[in-house]
Simulated assay, not measured.
Amino acid sequence: MHDHVTARDQPASGHSGAASGQWFSPVDAPAGAIRVFALPHAGGASVMYREWNDLLPADISLQAVQLPGRQDRRFEPADLTIEPLVESLRDALLAELDDRPFALFGHSMGGLVAYRLALELERAGDPTPILIGAAAWSPEGFTMPTQEKISLPEDELVAWLLSLGSLPPEIYQDPAVMALTMPATRADLTVCANYTDDGARVDCPVIAYTATDDPLMEPGAARSWATRSSAYLGECTFPGGHFFIHDQALPITLDLTRRLRKALVTAS
């Protein structure tokens, strides 16, 4: 639920690749036949998907979502509930879309946001994704943070984040990184804590990505997607903890590419 970013990732201007106030990085979409909008985990930023640009093939156009309250958007207030966040993101997405099919991918809180965004698009009669890739989050069986957890002193909150797995402790030893990331982390965790599930169902396929040792996911939790999607495509499980996405980027992108190409054929 925290972005793997170091002070070296911060350009001198304070920007991460998206212009100030921009929701997507890169700002100009690559020319792939299928567009993917990738959402970060709590506290995360668009930079967490930087490696994916070299892993995805040319027919997949990736744009990472940059939420308010982090990196180049750090002076914008972060949302504390999911409804205004999804509403603003929906407006930004609709302004960005063209006639190409698109998919949503999200890790942890990003999976929740992708799910609610797809629902909002469907309810409004807007263009909808051909696929949702949900990593390390499921509608049921996911342990949401408590307000008590969110309010922990910084050192205790960091210790909890590290206990989730796959985050190098050294990223928390840089005060500049802490100052940049912890406010967004607390805000995003608050979004999760304030979320109330309504059992809503999305009318698009969902593929779940999980880890063998994710302490936030109950065994079999990903199967709850079967009651939330018109076409649950199953679960891909990888070694690792909650932040397995950092270590498993290659196999995840390979599987996602295969499923996106199949979804494109199905949607045509």
Rank of each mutant, 00 (worst) to 15 (best):
A263M: 14
H4F: 11
S20D: 01
D3E: 09
I171P: 01
L80P: 07
G234P: 08
G240F: 02
D203A: 10
A208R: 00
M182L: 07
G14T: 00
A7L: 10
P153S: 13
H2Y: 13
H4K: 10
A211L: 09
G32L: 07
L93S: 01
S163Q: 12
D3W: 04
R228Q: 03
R90Y: 00
E122S: 02
A136K: 08
S46I: 05
T146H: 08
R258P: 06
A124P: 02
T181E: 11
E83Q: 08
V158L: 08
G44A: 04
P145D: 04
R223I: 12
D59W: 01
L164E: 00
V158Y: 03
L62G: 08
G125T: 04
D198Q: 15
Y49N: 05
L80F: 12
G111K: 12
A58V: 09
L264N: 05
F105H: 06
K149F: 14
C204R: 11
H107N: 05
F105P: 05
S268F: 05
L131T: 12
A118N: 05
W52M: 00
A38S: 11
M217R: 03
L85H: 03
V27H: 09
A136T: 05
L256S: 12
L162M: 14
S16P: 04
A78M: 06
S138F: 05
L164R: 04
A42Q: 09
L180F: 07
L162V: 09
G106H: 07
E154V: 15
Q63V: 03
Q173M: 09
T212S: 13
E96G: 06
G220A: 01
S151Q: 11
N194D: 02
C204D: 04
V5Q: 06
P251E: 01
E120C: 13
R258S: 15
